[in-house]
Amino acid sequence: MRIPSRELTPEDHELIETARRIVDAHTDGPDGVHTMGAAVRAADGSVHGGINLYHFTGGPCAELVALGTARAAGARALTTIVAVGNLGRGVCAPCGRDRQVLLDYHPGIRVLLPTPEGVRSVLIEDLLPGAYAWSPQG
């Protein structure tokens, strides 16, 4: 099955660069636990970042930290998110847990991820077809 995607905008490239700067500045290196940076853009144009907090109990991924950072800053409508790996690994796709959280809280969000055509923008709904239907409202 082919997932509908679109080419990146200049704003998407800026978001990737923000996530890359976060992980480059805060990574622990090849044996460290802070290995992914993320950036999310809000509808008002503000950008919020995060870095993963790996822990043996399953600490949050960089995407979830970025969502929390955005929420703490008052950004509720989010439009685009990206995660970038340390040591030059580039843009990485979100894990299944992140996909479910993104779909539940921001069903219209676009996710930047690697595809056979290069890094593209994909709607979260297209990344998680047949997802469990849950909402914070119950």
Rank of each mutant, 00 (worst) to 15 (best):
42 A>D: 03
9 T>Q: 08
128 L>H: 05
89 R>F: 11
90 G>W: 05
91 V>A: 03
95 C>D: 03
45 G>N: 07
114 P>E: 00
124 I>G: 00
25 A>S: 14
55 H>K: 12
62 A>P: 00
50 G>Q: 08
17 E>R: 14
113 L>A: 12
87 L>K: 01
60 P>H: 05
128 L>Q: 05
109 I>V: 13
124 I>P: 09
138 G>A: 14
37 G>E: 04
113 L>C: 12
100 Q>D: 06
17 E>C: 06
94 P>S: 02
106 H>W: 04
2 R>P: 10
59 G>E: 12
137 Q>T: 12
1 M>K: 14
83 A>T: 14
87 L>F: 02
46 S>F: 05
39 A>T: 07
62 A>T: 03
133 A>T: 13
130 G>L: 11
21 R>G: 08
38 A>R: 03
118 G>I: 12
57 T>M: 15
63 E>H: 05
112 L>Y: 01
37 G>S: 11
130 G>S: 12
64 L>S: 01
44 D>S: 11
122 V>K: 04
13 H>T: 09
93 A>N: 06
97 R>N: 09
33 V>P: 08
132 Y>T: 08
104 D>H: 02
4 P>I: 03
11 E>Y: 04
75 A>K: 07
104 D>P: 00
84 V>A: 00
116 P>T: 07
109 I>Y: 00
80 T>V: 14
24 D>L: 14
135 S>H: 15
3 I>N: 06
88 G>F: 09
53 L>T: 07
83 A>G: 10
121 S>R: 07
17 E>G: 08
18 T>W: 03
121 S>D: 07
63 E>C: 12
20 R>D: 03
54 Y>M: 14
79 T>H: 05
45 G>C: 10
22 I>L: 15
110 R>A: 00
22 I>N: 00
28 D>G: 15
98 D>V: 15
134 W>A: 11
20 R>L: 11
97 R>P: 08
14 E>Q: 13
45 G>R: 12
79 T>Y: 03
1 M>Y: 13
124 I>A: 02
96 G>D: 04
80 T>K: 03
90 G>E: 06
81 I>P: 03
65 V>H: 00
